[in-house]
Design a protein around this nucleic acid. Structure first.
Lengths: 349, 349
DNA sequence: CAGATGTGCTCATACGTATGAGCAGCGGGA
DNA sequence: TCCCGCTGCTCATACGTATGAGCACATCTG
């Protein structure tokens, strides 16, 4: 037994010949175009049988050329996926993407190939948009190329980006962890434990996700009428010994830290000064924590799997409603209970 | 700014009109078809200028349609990929697959969607081969469906399977870890340490990969003129207290175990009897080890990343040479040095 | 019985590209 | 002068699919 000569995959015309109809009839059966197609059940069955017998499968490129969908969702990462996956950046997103694609009957195209030899992955290679093969795409990556995003958007290609990316002159549809909401949630939680005097520990960098957290924090503090006496807040940022000294002197009972890194430094500094967490001061972290941190932080979680799922849904939505202007979507971040928040000390007047 | 209405991208014919040539001339300039194209430099420049002015971008689907290639390699796993990836079964294969696809300019299609609701992923859905979307595919999975492999093969679809799968009447092209070679290598290594009297510890199951290991072991033992006095070898298999007793009485100095599981049991049994590893008896394992085993075994490594790369190469090879009958390929398994092999004791005569 | 309406298809074409075949014009050799 | 061969293109077609237009026939209406 030898395999069939891999000459050609069967085409609609082959199916048509076998079923004794025309190619266009086959196309109509496949499209399931009920209203205008007027194909009686008996013919339909004959065509379907022929399709089955020949193992016919539609040619993606031809379909695409005709502007039809392929039930294919693209995944484009601006760096190699798998080398990073262990480190958890992409991995869980992909989990959600795969899961949802599976549920909705889409297959996934991983756009892996780089254009140039520089390792940077680009959407446009030789000027051609490679994503076009897929009906729509999910993009992710830390080193996202904003110019490419802008061009994709200008070309009207349906895609979403995981994580907020803002490009002047374009409205990039993104799926974004709701850092703002998480920040207010964490303040609410602390307030629920009786805390009234807060401090906010900020990262030196100015980045969009941090801005969201800061907004949320401020909003919650104001809404609840709490006191924010963050040393250095709005001023120089980051953590210094001075900052901690001032914190301890000031009598704040709750600290909200932007990152695990900062929280860890803070914890060390407080211990040195004999201040206990959470007995004396509660600390919460506005970042997802990972294993191997020195404390079990009260923190937020980035729902990566859910974000992956939602990204797929958003793309499908854009395919179904091509005329609606694409919008970004916030995804709530659960607050993970830890052991660094406790009831506020009685205030000594 | 609003996005372009999709589908209004300039075509070669637009470029041609602007440059005052024909569409085919434009195509030839783009293809850079030096030999047969006979386009003078001046015309070439005019065309290139027009391309630039219009922002022309080749249409991938049209190209694919013409070339009958999609530069797409399929990856079909018989279970969901990502949920398992952490557990390491698929993960490193994918690493290699992605890497090589990237290098060779292929994109990856992950065939994720199940046909039925039973969670089993099938190649053929409604009798049609879904993989046809990709030029060729790499298949993997523990629960491979052999009937589907056979059908794929009969259809002449270009694919390889990672791991040996034998189907009567078909010659499934596989990429296979060379367990046989690794087994002889390990025997060689032991012999190099002066061992002459060997025992082989086998798994109860009869599976192809084990058969390979056993062949390799036997071959090396015979070639080197060593003694194999495995208790129970060729007879009942697995590890019993009796087996260990007989081993200790027999005076063998080297044991080759088929699996970490067996080796661990053996180690325990030897310890109970006051026999030291590796001082008294050296033990090697014919399986890849993982973290968290009780000893640092001298063992083999399954070069998963390399296998992934090679699988992609094999598929591309099949695409380039459709007439060559596809062959399986052995991939050497490196031998990982551990601490369970030492020089053989002096034989006391 | 003429005309209208409906059914079950087929025909022809377009999508954008690549490529073998071929054609017009020119220079050069016999 | 005739013809050959080269240059610089153009023409036509095929890839596989989807779809508007239309055709032949049947059935119904008045």
């Amino acid at each position: 037994m030898t395999p069939k000569r891999r000459g050609q995959a069967p085409r609609q015309s082959d199916v048509a010949r076998l079923a004794g109809v025309s190619q266009s009839a086959v196309s109509r059966v496949i499209s399931g175009d009920v209203d205008s197609a007027r194909i009686p059940e008996e013919t339909r069955q004959r065509v379907l049988a022929a399709i089955k017998e020949l193992g016919y499968v539609p040619n993606a490129s031809a379909r695409n050329l005709r502007n039809k969908r392929n039930r294919l969702i693209g995944v484009h990462t601006f760096e190699a996926v798998f080398p990073h996956a262990r480190d958890d950046f992409y991995f869980e997103f992909l989990l959600g993407i795969e899961e949802r694609a599976e549920q909705t009957g889409f297959d996934l195209v991983m756009f892996t190939s780089t254009g140039a030899g520089d390792g940077r992955r680009r959407v446009y290679r030789d000027g051609t948009n490679r994503l076009n093969l897929a009906d729509g795409s999910v993009l992710l990556g830390v080193s996202t190329d904003r110019a490419e995003l802008a061009r994709l958007w200008a070309d009207g290609y349906p895609f979403v980006h995981i994580g907020r990316r803002e490009v002047p002159g374009a409205e990039i549809p993104c799926v974004i962890p709701d850092y703002r909401g998480a920040a207010t949630g964490i303040v609410d939680k602390l307030a629920g434990h009786g805390h009234r005097r807060f401090a906010y520990l900020r990262e030196p960098m100015e980045m969009e996700p941090y801005a969201d957290r800061r907004d949320g924090y401020r909003e919650a503090v104001e809404r609840l009428g709490l006191t924010d006496r963050s040393p250095g807040f709005r001023g120089e940022s980051g953590l210094t010994g001075e900052w901690i000294d001032e914190l301890v002197r000031g009598g704040e009972t709750a600290v909200v830290a932007e990152s695990v890194r900062l929280a860890e430094q803070l914890l060390g500094g407080l211990r040195e000064r004999g201040v206990r967490v959470p007995e004396d001061i509660s600390v919460a972290v506005l970042e997802a924590t990972w294993e191997g941190t020195s404390a079990q932080w009260d923190s937020l979680e980035i729902p990566r799997v859910a974000i992956g799922r939602i990204a797929v849904d958003r793309v499908i939505d854009m395919l179904d409603h091509p005329d609606q202007p694409p919008e970004s979507l916030l995804v709530p971040c659960p607050i993970v209970p830890g052991t660094t928040i406790a009831a506020a000390r009685e205030e000594r007047p």
